[in-house]
Each structure stands twice: as C-alpha cells, then as structure tokens.
C-alpha cells in the first residue's frame, strides 16, 4: 500500500502528531514500506479463522463496588504542566 501525502497528513492529524511539510514525503515512503512489509500476511488464507485478541482468552474478573481510593489530588497534580484551583488547565476549548 503506497500512502499519498494527503493520507499521511490525515493519519498524523488523527494521531495528533504535527509533521513538517518537508517530512511528509519521508513519512510516506517509510510508512508505505512498512505497510508493504506487513501485507505479507495476505500470503495466508485466514478466512473463517476467529481473530485472537488475547493470548489467554480468559473471562473478565469483576470487583466489588467499593470506594477504595481517597483524595490524591495534590500528589497526582504535582506533575501537571498547568493547573489552578485544582483544575488542569488547557488552551480554550470551543464547543
């Protein structure tokens, strides 16, 4: 699969990765090569094979509905880039 420039930009946007215009071509080439490589998978017929999401295929364990966590705000927000009044601050969100 050869990716065109627009597709590369769309993926980057979806993944929230800024890429300079000058690097788009390089990404297109690299990613296309990797996609060609992984497409070797098509050598094997997998029709009717049930996808395997997880090596164990176990069932979900459920926990009791108990409040076990206490207020850790100060400790958790030490690492916050910008905060005020207990809130994490981000550039203005417009709805």
């Amino acid at each position: 699969m050869a990716l065109d420039h627009q597709t590369v930009k769309n993926i980057a946007r979806l993944a929230r990765l800024h890429i300079d215009e000058s690097n788009v071509e390089r990404y297109a080439v690299e990613l296309s090569r990797i996609l060609d490589f992984v497409e070797q998978m098509n050598r094997v017929d997998t029709q009717d094979v049930i996808p395997l999401a997880h090596p164990q295929e176990g069932r979900l364990r459920l926990r009791d509905d108990l409040v076990t966590e206490t207020n850790q705000r100060d400790s958790l927000q030490k690492a916050a880039p910008e905060k005020e009044a207990g809130l994490y601050l981000v550039p203005k969100v417009i709805e």
């Binding site: 926990r63 108990l66 409040v67 076990t68 966590e69 207020n71 850790q72 705000r73 958790l76 927000q77 009044a85 207990g86 809130l87 994490y88």
Partner: peptide
C-alpha cells in the same frame, strides 16, 4: 474501572484517582 467515589459535587479532581 476504579475504586474512586462517584459522589456528585466534590471539589474538582478530588475524586479522580491514578
């Protein structure tokens, strides 16, 4: 998916655990 309280109206981020 966590053991934090769901009570309404607490101070901001005091019921947001790791």
């Amino acid at each position: 998916f966590s053991g934090a309280s769901t009570a309404f109206g607490a101070d901001a981020n005091t019921q947001a655990c790791a």
